[in-house]
């Protein structure tokens, strides 16, 4: 599946899509495939702060667990409630229905440090 070019990435496999002053965050297909069937996504609550390069949650499969890292700082304005009941959505549709957080950015310049799709693709080795 082609990597969407409308968003930016962390090497730790999180995508960031900017819409106005809000960023939507999720993980890439590469990460979802690597984890295999996702069983649980632990996300913060609306109103919680997130910080750039810090974990905001965790994602689990039967055999692995990984931190979810944010590339930007700000405040959580929405979380994908669907994932609590149906974490497999992240495997099936990581770039749309499998989104995780919406964050109101406190420092939009942080987006500049994130990777473009082709850079991420190279670093992820795919």
């Amino acid at each position: 599946m082609a990597l969407p070019t409308d968003r930016k990435y962390l090497q730790t496999h999180e995508w960031h899509l900017v819409q106005g002053d809000t960023v939507t965050i999720g993980i890439t297909q590469i990460a979802a495939d690597e984890l295999t069937d996702i069983t649980f996504v632990d996300l913060p609550e609306v109103g919680d702060p997130v910080k750039a390069d810090q974990p905001f949650g965790e994602i689990e499969s039967v055999k692995a667990t990984a931190d979810l890292i944010s590339g930007i700082s700000g405040k959580v304005t929405a979380v994908n409630e669907e994932l609590a009941a149906n974490p497999g959505v992240v495997n099936r549709d990581p770039y749309a229905a499998g989104w995780m957080l919406k964050v109101k950015m406190s420092d939009p310049s942080e987006m500049g440090k994130l990777l473009a799709a082709d850079e991420y693709s190279k670093k992820a080795g795919h």
């Binding site: 069983t39 649980f40 689990e60 499969s61 039967v62 055999k63 692995a64 667990t65």
Partner: peptide
Amino acid sequence: LQTREQHIRREK
């Protein structure tokens, strides 16, 4: 829920 356990999470 073995991901809570040491053989997967190690130091976490």
